[in-house]
């Protein structure tokens, strides 16, 4: 056992970049899956909508920790053991895809129906309607809740620690194991997460207020 020193703090601070990197990778993957899920959810075919709905129910109705376990151990079982970072990215992306898909479905559906009808009357194709008419408007509506979800994603990356990936939380555990000073170590870890998440929370709140002002008339 040794005492806490400045080097430990620096170690935690440097571990933050892995938290950020994991969050960004998961947001990229989750964004791709979420976009697909959102489009499937607003499809005109009921079977397709149902399938996407099942995906959302599956990932929103079970704990993220177990989803990560399944990816981690499942890849092992398939004979392609994945490094913890990759397994965590895949697991977080699958999960984020369900939540982002649901957020973006709501945004697409809150674009007035008449917009779509007008575009159809003008003879535009589905792809053009989506790309030129619906999505640009939906994206504006989606910004605030998407930034809000980012907070959840950053917090969720802490679960990668359970699989042994050394990001902020795992770094805290390692230092605690060496120094056995849990309170200062984990309090520092919590403050670092707060510093990552709080600006996003504030940004999301501001965007929401601006949206509310823009639509109120």
């Amino acid at each position: 056992m040794r005492s806490l020193n400045f080097g430990d703090f620096l170690y935690l601070l440097l571990a933050v970049r892995w938290t950020i990197l994991l969050s960004m990778a998961a947001f990229a993957g989750g964004g791709l899956i979420g976009a697909g899920i959102a489009l499937l959810r607003v499809s005109s075919r009921p079977a397709v909508r149902l399938l996407a709905g099942l995906y959302i129910q599956l990932f929103q109705g079970t704990p993220l920790l177990l989803q990560l376990f399944l990816v981690f151990f499942g890849s092992d079982m398939l004979g392609v053991p994945l490094p913890a970072f990759v397994a965590a990215t895949i697991g977080l992306s699958l999960n984020a895809g369900a939540f982002l898909g649901e957020i973006w479905r709501g945004s697409i559906q809150s674009v007035p129906k008449s917009q779509r009808e007008a575009a159809e009357a003008l003879g535009l194709h589905y792809a053009t309607i989506m790309r030129r008419v619906i999505l640009p408007q939906a994206m504006r509506i989606a910004t605030a809740p998407t930034v809000g979800f980012l907070v959840n994603l950053v917090k969720a990356t802490s679960l990668a620690a359970v699989m042994g990936f050394i990001e902020l939380t795992r770094a805290g555990q390692l230092i605690n194991n060496a120094t056995f000073r849990p309170l200062p170590v984990f309090a520092t870890v919590a403050v670092l997460y707060f510093l990552l998440c709080w600006p996003l929370t504030i940004a999301s709140r501001r965007l929401e207020r601006r949206m509310a002002l823009a639509t109120k008339r």
Partner: peptide
């Protein structure tokens, strides 16, 4: 704005 896992540890 902090993860539940870290709250549990604290």
């Amino acid at each position: 704005n902090t993860p539940f896992l870290v709250q549990v540890f604290v």
